[in-house]
Design a protein around this nucleic acid. Structure first.
Length: 223
DNA sequence: TAGTTCCA
DNA sequence: GACG
């Protein structure tokens, strides 16, 4: 099964299958893996329990999402292990963000998730951003992933769909506050990434638009 | 509860 | 065995 019934997906969930060409996928994958040189993948840990996640992570952009046992979920400007600023967000992704989300501000964070053979990501809601209503854009590269989408409550019914290399998903509106996760990877089905695996790139606006900017766009006088 | 495991 |  490739697609879920659209009428069972939350309002504001949009899926563009094969939005990126094979050449674009290859170039983007190369650029992401090059970024791992200065911003290496690390194993995130859950708050309090310190249990390791099965997805390895790094970030691009001004801010990156990180988690560890003591600090919990947060955004920060530097890599937790090297202390260096995150690499820049690939330009292709900024173009995609503008075209597909129409959001009037640039994304600040590009979370890079690497899924190996048995990686999964439990059902959760993105809620660590100040800009809670800004859309979230997700780009899939490499092996297919079984993506699951539910509702605002954890117990709400869920539907699943396969995301394949080059697919783009945007969560906006109600879908922005819905649970979602990844149940399974068909590891080794593609050869885009070395010996198999999946890269997911998730772009987010973290900070609210400055009040000054809102007033300016509304025609008000500056300070 | 961004975790694991179990089971119909 | 895959899915939920």
């Amino acid at each position: 099964m490739t697609s879920a019934r659209a009428d069972r997906l939350p309002n504001g969930f949009r899926h563009w299958p094969g939005e990126l060409t094979v050449d674009e996928q290859a170039a983007l994958a190369r650029e992401v893996m090059a970024g791992w040189g200065s911003a290496p993948l690390y194993t995130p840990r859950l708050p309090r329990s310190g249990k390791p996640m099965r997805v390895r992570m790094t970030n691009f952009g001004l801010l990156g999402w990180v988690t560890d046992k003591t600090g919990g979920y947060r955004y920060q400007a530097c890599h937790p292990q090297t202390g260096a600023p995150w690499p820049a967000i690939p330009f292709l992704l900024l173009q995609l963000w503008d075209r597909l989300t129409g959001y009037p501000a640039r994304p600040e964070a590009c979370l890079v998730n690497w899924y190996g053979e048995n990686a999964r990501l439990g059902l959760h809601v993105d809620a660590d951003e100040e800009a809670l209503d800004a859309p979230v854009m997700s780009v899939s590269l490499g092996d297919p992933a079984l993506f699951r989408v539910g509702g605002p409550a954890r117990r709400d019914p869920t539907t699943s769909l396969w995301l394949e290399s080059g697919d783009v998903v945007v969560l906006s509106g109600r879908a922005r506050h819905c649970h979602h996760g990844v149940d399974r990877i068909r590891f080794g089905e593609t050869n885009l990434i070395g010996g198999g695996g999946r890269i997911n790139l998730t772009l987010r606006r973290v900070t609210e638009l400055a009040r000054r900017d809102c007033l300016t766009h509304a025609g008000g006088a500056g300070p």
